[in-house]
């Protein structure tokens, strides 16, 4: 529900649910908030049952703060750890059957565009590596090939953490896990490469040990998905239970992994660059002036 075109009759606001009023009065609805201001406003995400110190939770928290128009955003998820937190937020959450999330999001996006026309309604899929690269692989790729305009975020913990530690397509080769005692036999899937081949307009990898970068990447991905085409973010969100990372070392692990094999990368099409620079003032994407010709 957007504050821009739905206004409450004065005096009736108090009959709205407290959660909604909190978001309007003390939260980010109808305002611009940023990661650097956290702690000073009420966040959309609330208490959730995810494990202490979970990096995935931190990423979800940062991602929800970064939504450009949270009151106009719908999240879609599926089975996995992430949905335990995503569903505990004061914005609508749609639960797709396992693997269906990108199919559900496709229909949802199209429906919202029919219903609301040019009013921006953002759909953001957040699901794990199992739901996206294994079981939901076909639906994920097909939504990209169809150029469905929504954002897909993979919460890549490189394991089926919710069911006891089975290997997923995104697990690294030779990784030994509780339910993969001989080690994984194959390479980690190149979902980034596939996203580019399938036509995503914005593709990025990110690790949550840099909150402002997470914010920047999510904002760009959601904005690009409004007009240009699908966007894909792959976020390393370690499972401290299955990978036995002490909770106070989760950020140290994130830093090591980022340096080692999960470096920040960003791919953006020329059309998306032009869109972001023209409509949203992203100066880094403005065409660079031609170099001055040096006189002989």
């Amino acid at each position: 529900m957007s504050l821009d075109y739905v206004k409450f009759t004065p005096g009736f606001g108090k009959f709205m649910p407290k959660e909604y009023r909190d978001m309007v009065e003390h939260g980010p609805f109808g305002k611009k908030t940023s990661v650097s201001q956290v702690g000073t406003f009420k966040e959309i995400l609330e208490e959730h049952p995810m494990c202490a110190g979970c990096a995935m939770t931190l990423f979800i928290r940062l991602a929800i703060i970064a939504f450009p128009n949270p009151e106009d955003t719908i999240t879609v998820g599926t089975a996995g750890c992430g949905r335990l937190a995503i569903s505990q937020a004061a914005i609508p959450f749609v639960y797709g059957n396992y693997g269906d999330q990108n199919g559900v999001a496709s229909g949802l996006t199209r429906g919202l565009r029919l219903r609301f026309g040019d009013k921006p309604k953002d759909v953001v899929v957040m699901a794990g590596d199992g739901g996206m690269a294994d079981i939901g692989f076909a639906q994920t790729l097909h939504s990209w090939f169809r150029k469905e305009k929504f954002t897909t975020i993979m919460l890549d913990n490189e394991v089926y953490g919710n069911t006891g530690g089975q290997e997923s397509g995104m697990t690294n080769k030779n990784q030994v896990l509780k339910m993969a005692p001989l080690g994984k036999k194959f390479e980690k899937m190149d979902m980034l490469g596939m996203a580019k081949v399938a036509g995503c307009a914005y593709v990025a990898t990110v690790v949550p040990n840099n909150p402002r970068r997470v914010e920047s990447v999510i904002k760009k991905a959601v904005l690009v998905a409004r007009e240009i085409g699908p966007s894909y973010i792959q976020a390393y969100t370690s499972c401290n239970i299955e990978y036995a990372i002490p909770t106070d070392k989760v950020m140290e692990d994130a830093k090591t992994v980022e340096t080692d094999r999960y470096k920040f990368s960003e791919y953006i099409t020329d059309e998306a660059k032009e869109y972001l620079s023209q409509l949203y003032g992203y100066k880094e994407y403005l065409p660079k002036p031609a170099a001055a010709v040096t006189k002989q």
């Binding site: 990661v35 650097s36 956290v38 702690g39 000073t40 009420k42 966040e43 959309i44 995400l45 609330e46 208490e47 959730h48 995810m50 202490a52 110190g53 979970c54 990096a55 939770t57 931190l58 928290r61 940062l62 909150p211 950020m251």
Partner: peptide, 18 residues
């Protein structure tokens, strides 16, 4: 520095009092 408010995995937990 407000770093702890940004890195806490729990929402609305580390708050900031001006």
């Amino acid at each position: 520095c407000k770093l702890c408010t940004q890195y806490c995995p729990e929402a609305n937990t580390i708050l900031y009092d001006n």
